[in-house]
Amino acid sequence: MQRVNMIMAESPGLITICLLGYLLSAECTVFLDHENANKILNRPKRYNSGKLEEFVQGNLERECMEEKCSFEEAREVFENTERTTEFWKQYVDGDQCESNPCLNGGSCKDDINSYECWCPFGFEGKNCELDVTCNIKNGRCEQFCKNSADNKVVCSCTEGYRLAENQKSCEPAVPFPCGRVSVSQTSKLTRAETVFPDVDYVNSTEAETILDNITQSTQSFNDFTRVVGGEDAKPGQFPWQVVLNGKVDAFCGGSIVNEKWIVTAAHCVETGVKITVVAGEHNIEETEHTEQKRNVIRIIPHHNYNAAINKYNHDIALLELDEPLVLNSYVTPICIADKEYTNIFLKFGSGYVSGWGRVFHKGRSALVLQYLRVPLVDRATCLRSTKFTIYNNMFCAGFHEGGRDSCQGDSGGPHVTEVEGTSFLTGIISWGEECAMKGKYGIYTKVSRYVNWIKEKTKLT
């Protein structure tokens, strides 16, 4: 034993070699072989497995989906700052455009905790909710729209109204504003409101030439003092309507412009014939205590009207009353817009006519005020429907199939267009061939041609 100890002390290297040989010859039971080890760690190889990531292109799944990435790591994937920024906006807080917040056709661009709407022409605001041009839906104005110097929408209202708090709607500024039905039992019968379409306001006024200088022999019209197929109006439903009495009662109609003036057809009036105007009328054979009678003290036909040349060209006249009318729910003026808007309103496509005229061709006159909704007829169809001249200051309205029309005794009465609950004068009943005849239409004086003249002559002093 002493000898062994001496050998170990003198030859430590020998001992180490012996131990190493023993270990190498022993069977290893701690580690699995290569094949079995792979069965336990069965993990798919990654895209760049075996390579240094710093030297390969980034992978979106590896960089940002398996674990949260930084902007720089995302930049490695896209290799483009702009594309990385677009991805980053949604990656950080989701897609803010998912709810489609942009209105009126706006395009949404996502941002971090926010979004941006790219608005089409005519709109602005956070969600493109603000109209900035009158060309689109009248700028959301209830009545009139004008573009300011910086191309912003400025709404306005006709006389007797003021802008509401929203700067879009119009509200009454006087007790009985024009064009409004205020009798409670008839307010439910107000005709369907007309909503502004998209309009090209630059070209809204037709490029028409008034044929002022045409000389033409007097034409022989049949029954051209021209509501057939209409309905009984309720008291106060058309408070701007008046009836004219002269040699015979209810020979023509008219509309209240203001307390002192009536507008009617020029062919209705004769110099030297006494005319009485009755406002607030409903049943011409009954006294309903809503009527107001006034005498006409002055007749002003349009300066281009000449019955000797043509009885229905420039067929418009103004009547001055001896005493002002007292405005109330049964006696209310009709609204008159400017030339541009009167023309736009007419193009809405349908209007209402009213009167006490004959209820059928050569038949009896109506006792109760009649009204009828009539569609506008395109000019080409209008011209083809008659052998008589249709001037540019006239328009056609009615039904091709016949059966409904204005008729004798309705002449001078109103053709009105309702705009968001307020009625505007767009025409004056003038003439036609018979009444409600198939293929024939009622012919009306186009008020847009005469609004400046009306307003100039009827100013209240």
Rank of each mutant, 00 (worst) to 15 (best):
residue 355 G to L: 08
residue 427 G to C: 00
residue 374 V to E: 01
residue 448 S to K: 01
residue 211 L to H: 13
residue 366 A to G: 10
residue 119 C to Y: 00
residue 314 H to N: 12
residue 281 E to G: 13
residue 19 L to N: 02
residue 87 F to K: 15
residue 104 N to A: 02
residue 96 Q to P: 06
residue 388 F to Y: 14
residue 225 T to L: 11
residue 174 V to I: 09
residue 454 I to Y: 01
residue 49 S to T: 13
residue 398 G to M: 05
residue 323 E to R: 07
residue 8 M to W: 12
residue 412 G to Q: 04
residue 251 F to S: 09
residue 422 T to V: 13
residue 136 I to T: 04
residue 315 D to E: 02
residue 228 V to W: 07
residue 431 W to G: 11
residue 320 E to Q: 06
residue 255 S to Y: 02
residue 8 M to S: 14
residue 208 E to M: 08
residue 247 K to R: 11
residue 67 E to S: 04
residue 296 V to P: 03
residue 251 F to T: 07
residue 219 Q to K: 11
residue 56 V to N: 15
residue 135 N to S: 11
residue 28 C to H: 03
residue 25 S to P: 08
residue 371 Y to L: 11
residue 288 E to K: 07
residue 311 K to M: 07
residue 410 D to C: 11
residue 106 G to K: 00
residue 108 C to W: 00
residue 340 E to L: 09
residue 72 E to C: 04
residue 70 S to D: 06
residue 412 G to L: 10
residue 189 L to R: 11
residue 252 C to I: 01
residue 453 W to E: 00
residue 216 Q to L: 11
residue 50 G to P: 14
residue 345 F to T: 01
residue 154 V to L: 10
residue 255 S to Q: 02
residue 53 E to A: 07
residue 399 F to H: 12
residue 325 L to C: 01
residue 147 N to W: 14
residue 452 N to T: 13
residue 301 P to S: 09
residue 217 S to E: 12
residue 47 Y to A: 11
residue 30 V to Q: 15
residue 418 E to L: 10
residue 286 E to H: 10
residue 224 F to I: 10
residue 101 P to W: 02
residue 328 N to T: 12
residue 231 E to T: 14
residue 4 V to E: 07
residue 264 T to L: 02
residue 440 K to W: 03
residue 100 N to T: 09
residue 453 W to L: 00
residue 378 D to A: 13
residue 214 I to F: 07
residue 265 A to R: 02
residue 276 T to M: 07
residue 423 S to A: 11
residue 129 E to F: 01
residue 257 V to P: 00
residue 425 L to F: 02
residue 19 L to K: 02
residue 36 N to G: 11
residue 191 R to C: 05
residue 275 I to R: 01
residue 94 G to C: 03
residue 446 K to H: 05
residue 76 E to R: 15
residue 61 E to I: 15
residue 400 H to V: 14
residue 230 G to V: 11
residue 232 D to H: 13
residue 228 V to H: 08
residue 282 H to G: 08
residue 301 P to I: 09
residue 459 K to F: 07
residue 178 C to A: 00
residue 422 T to H: 03
residue 117 C to F: 00
residue 197 P to K: 13
residue 412 G to Y: 06
residue 207 A to V: 09
residue 118 W to R: 14
residue 276 T to D: 05
residue 220 S to L: 12
residue 383 L to H: 15
residue 360 F to C: 11
residue 246 G to E: 04
residue 431 W to E: 09
residue 26 A to H: 03
residue 457 K to S: 11
residue 286 E to K: 09
residue 299 I to T: 13
residue 382 C to K: 02
residue 157 C to Q: 00
residue 349 G to I: 02
residue 22 Y to W: 14
residue 180 R to E: 02
residue 298 R to M: 03
residue 327 L to E: 03
residue 290 T to H: 12
residue 360 F to T: 15
residue 311 K to N: 05
residue 191 R to A: 13
residue 219 Q to Y: 07
residue 72 E to L: 15
residue 166 N to F: 02
residue 176 F to E: 02
residue 20 L to F: 11
residue 434 E to F: 13
residue 212 D to N: 10
residue 50 G to M: 15
residue 435 C to Y: 03
residue 333 P to Y: 00
residue 62 R to D: 03
residue 257 V to E: 00
residue 70 S to H: 15
residue 300 I to W: 05
residue 163 L to N: 03
residue 385 S to H: 15
residue 133 T to W: 04
residue 210 I to K: 08
residue 345 F to W: 06
residue 267 H to L: 02
residue 287 T to P: 08
residue 283 N to E: 06
residue 453 W to N: 01
residue 38 N to I: 09
residue 111 D to F: 08
residue 9 A to N: 11
residue 231 E to L: 08
residue 269 V to D: 02
residue 443 I to G: 02
residue 120 P to K: 07
residue 333 P to M: 02
residue 113 N to T: 06
residue 417 T to L: 01
residue 236 G to R: 06
residue 117 C to R: 01
residue 455 K to P: 01
residue 323 E to Y: 07
residue 404 R to M: 06
residue 289 H to I: 10
residue 6 M to G: 13
residue 166 N to C: 02
residue 228 V to C: 10
residue 406 S to R: 12
residue 231 E to P: 10
residue 355 G to I: 05
residue 99 S to P: 09
residue 207 A to K: 12
residue 6 M to L: 13
residue 150 D to W: 05
residue 183 V to S: 11
residue 211 L to K: 10
residue 80 N to G: 15
residue 46 R to Q: 15
residue 441 Y to D: 00
residue 448 S to G: 09
residue 433 E to Q: 14
residue 182 S to P: 06
residue 120 P to Y: 03
residue 10 E to I: 13
residue 245 N to A: 06
residue 36 N to A: 10
residue 256 I to P: 00
residue 412 G to A: 13
residue 345 F to G: 00
residue 389 T to F: 13
residue 301 P to Y: 10
residue 303 H to W: 08
residue 203 N to D: 06
residue 150 D to C: 04
residue 364 R to W: 05
residue 249 D to Y: 04
residue 39 K to F: 08
residue 446 K to S: 08
residue 365 S to A: 14
residue 12 P to A: 14
residue 78 F to N: 15
residue 128 C to R: 01
residue 420 E to L: 12
residue 247 K to Y: 05
residue 83 R to P: 15
residue 454 I to D: 00
residue 330 Y to D: 04
residue 263 V to D: 01
residue 2 Q to K: 08
residue 30 V to S: 15
residue 156 S to D: 09
residue 325 L to A: 00
residue 38 N to V: 09
residue 327 L to R: 06
residue 305 Y to R: 10
residue 47 Y to R: 06
residue 297 I to C: 05
residue 105 G to K: 03
residue 399 F to V: 13
residue 345 F to M: 07
residue 33 D to H: 09
residue 442 G to T: 14
residue 138 N to Q: 03
residue 208 E to V: 09
residue 323 E to T: 14
residue 285 E to W: 11
residue 123 F to A: 03
residue 181 V to P: 11
residue 301 P to G: 04
residue 179 G to D: 01
residue 156 S to N: 05
residue 259 E to P: 09
residue 126 K to P: 13
residue 280 G to W: 02
residue 410 D to P: 13
residue 240 W to A: 01
residue 184 S to K: 10
residue 235 P to E: 07
residue 317 A to P: 01
